[in-house]
Structure formats: C-alpha cells, structure tokens
C-alpha cells in the first residue's frame, strides 16, 4: 500500500464504516420488527404454545433436529412436521420412542404427560404456520 494511504486514514474509514453499517443494521432491524406481525404468526402464541416451546427447549430437541432449518442435522426437520404428520401422529410418536431398532438412529423417551404432549403439538402447529417464504422446498423438510 502506497504512502498516500496513511494509517490514520485507514483507522477513520474503519470507525466510520463500522458505525455506518451498524446503524444501517439497526434500521433494518427496526423495520423487521415492524413487519414481523404480518409473518410470524404471533396471534397464535397462546400460553399453551409458550409452554410447548419451554418443553422443546428443556428437552434439547434441537440437539438432533432442525427447526426451520437451524439446529442439528441428525434427525428430520420439525418446522413443518405438524403439516407432514399431524398432531396425533406426533403424540403417538413421542410415546413410542425409542424404537430400539438395531443400528437405527434413536430418539429418547421423554416421559411427557398428555398435557405436555398437547403443549408440544401446539408449539409445532404454531411453528408450521410461520411465513417462511415457502421453505422448505417440499413436505419432507
């Protein structure tokens, strides 16, 4: 780099550029927060859904599954599992685990009560109705 471009110029561009783009990011965040009510299905968030999310988190489902494409890649996507399988299947599935099929990937038994299973299903139903710009490409997730 030539002598014309000095260190203090480089420093000023750093602080100026970073500040500018950080403020732009905050502005976009602000606008996102304004737009979200139209997309994030917040009307469906009931105490039951909130309880379901809590169960989802405290059992670390995300440690094997993805949810809207984020998480672990060991087991099926669950963002759209409500649409793929329906609530009754999910409840039955949770109770039937583990399959114990030799050599097959296993999912633990979480011993959830019937009420907790309903909460979990409510959370997965709410999730499946978030507007995700048409992701995933098909029902298999």
């Amino acid at each position: 780099m030539s002598g014309i471009f000095t260190k203090s110029m480089a420093r000023n561009i750093f602080y100026g550029g970073t500040t500018f783009f950080f403020l732009l990011f905050l502005a976009l965040t602000f606008d996102t927060e304004r737009e979200l009510p139209n997309r994030d299905n917040r009307a469906a968030i009931t105490p039951e859904v909130a309880a379901g999310k809590h169960i989802w988190e405290t059992r670390n489902c995300l440690g094997c599954h993805t949810l809207l494409g984020e998480g672990a890649y060991f087991a099926p996507e669950l963002g759209n599992v409500y649409k793929r399988r329906g609530g009754d299947f999910i409840k039955g599935w949770m109770q039937a685990m583990p399959t114990g099929a030799p050599g097959r990937r296993q999912m633990p038994q979480f011993n959830l009560t019937d009420e907790e299973l309903d909460q979990l299903v409510a959370f997965l139903k709410y999730t499946s109705e978030i507007n995700t710009a048409n992701w995933p490409p098909n029902i298999e997730g």
């Binding site: 060991f74 087991a75 583990p98 114990g100 296993q106 633990p108």
Partner: peptide, 12 residues
C-alpha cells in the same frame, strides 16, 4: 445409530 444409546444420546 444406536451407538452409546441411551447412555449418551446424540444431542448430549
């Protein structure tokens, strides 16, 4: 898939 299950499940 069932290696170390249920002692150390994948997520753990």
């Amino acid at each position: 898939g069932d290696f170390l299950f249920p002692e150390i499940p994948f997520n753990v």
